[in-house]
Computed example of a mutant assay.
Amino acid sequence: MFIGPMGRRAFMLGASAFILAGCVSTGQTVPTMTPVAEIEPEPVVPLMYAALPNEQFPIPEVDVSKVDQKWWRTEVDYPTGEKVGTVVVDTPNRYLYHVRSNGRATRYGVGVGRDGFAWAGQGHIAYKREWPRWRPPNEMVARQPELEPYSIDNGGMPPGLNNPLGSRALYIHEGNRDTIYRIHGTPEFSTIGKSVSSGCIRMLNQDVIHLADNVRDGSAIVVIPDPSMSHLLVG
């Protein structure tokens, strides 16, 4: 059908009116869009901190939201005069290094002993234990009488997820003397990178298992003192 110029003009005006009519309020309330708050994504748990269901006591995954990424296990450049296989605990900076070849090391975040209950010096890893019993020394029981049921005389605390030594313990000796200090696991994620324990060196359970699997009995250990700790016990 032919539409002349006047017809086209009338058609366009009618169409415009129709479009405009569609934009006119009908009197109904149009819901407004409420801004949606941005939701923080859940941190992704790396494979190295996944659950370990095949352990004697199944270990849950690490809650990485409670462990700053700077404390996560990693491989780093670490030029040092210490021989390969040595364990170096950098107490002031809350890191443990397992010296590898070619100027490299595996670095772990650790918790260390609080002021007055820390130790530093040179020794060796005498031996390791899986899921050890915890036997608080008599000096600790004297300070905390509630630990008496777990004293050496009473056989200590059985192994388990709530045992303070966690999944593995590495026993530090100086010569033939047991220093009473340990490198051990902990389920208390938030203590990594802090000074909270009674002298021992705490690691995430997944990390201490990794360390124990790679450190040989008899390996040297160097614990660097923290100058801010006024009563540090130096061996």
Rank of each mutant, 00 (worst) to 15 (best):
L147I: 13
R168M: 15
V89T: 05
G160M: 01
G116E: 14
G156H: 09
P145I: 03
H98V: 08
K128N: 06
V112E: 04
R133K: 10
T106M: 06
Y97T: 02
A118M: 02
G113Q: 08
L147M: 07
G111M: 03
L170D: 15
R135I: 10
R168F: 14
E139N: 14
G111W: 03
P158Y: 08
N102W: 02
N102G: 10
A120Y: 01
P164I: 11
A105M: 01
I172G: 03
P92H: 14
R94N: 11
M140F: 14
M157P: 04
A126I: 07
W134A: 03
T106N: 01
P149F: 09
R133W: 15
N163W: 08
A120L: 04
I152D: 15
N93R: 15
Y150P: 02
Y171C: 04
G121W: 00
D90E: 06
N162A: 15
P137W: 11
W134S: 09
R104F: 14
L165W: 00
H98D: 08
Y150W: 10
V112R: 00
R143F: 09
M140H: 11
M140K: 14
D153I: 05
N102Y: 04
Y127I: 00
P164L: 05
R114P: 07
E130G: 05
M140E: 14
N93C: 07
Y127W: 13
P149T: 06
S151A: 09
G123D: 08
V141N: 12
K128V: 04
Q122M: 13
P145G: 03
P145D: 02
V141E: 13
W134T: 08
S151D: 09
V89P: 06
A120P: 09
H173M: 06
S151V: 04
M157Q: 12
L147R: 05
G113Y: 03
A118H: 06
Y108V: 01
D153L: 00
Y95E: 05
V112P: 00
G155R: 04
E148N: 11
G109V: 08
E130I: 03
Y171M: 04
R114S: 15
L161K: 12
R135K: 14
N138C: 00
R94W: 07
I172P: 01
L161N: 15
E146S: 13
G121L: 01
P137N: 11
V89I: 15
V99R: 12
N163A: 07
G113M: 09
Y127A: 00
Y108D: 06
N93V: 14
T106V: 13
V99G: 07
Y171E: 07
I172Y: 00
P92W: 12
V99F: 12
R129I: 06
Q122F: 15
G166E: 14
V141I: 12
L96M: 11
I152G: 02
H124C: 10
R133I: 10
G109Q: 09
W131S: 03
F117R: 08
L170H: 09
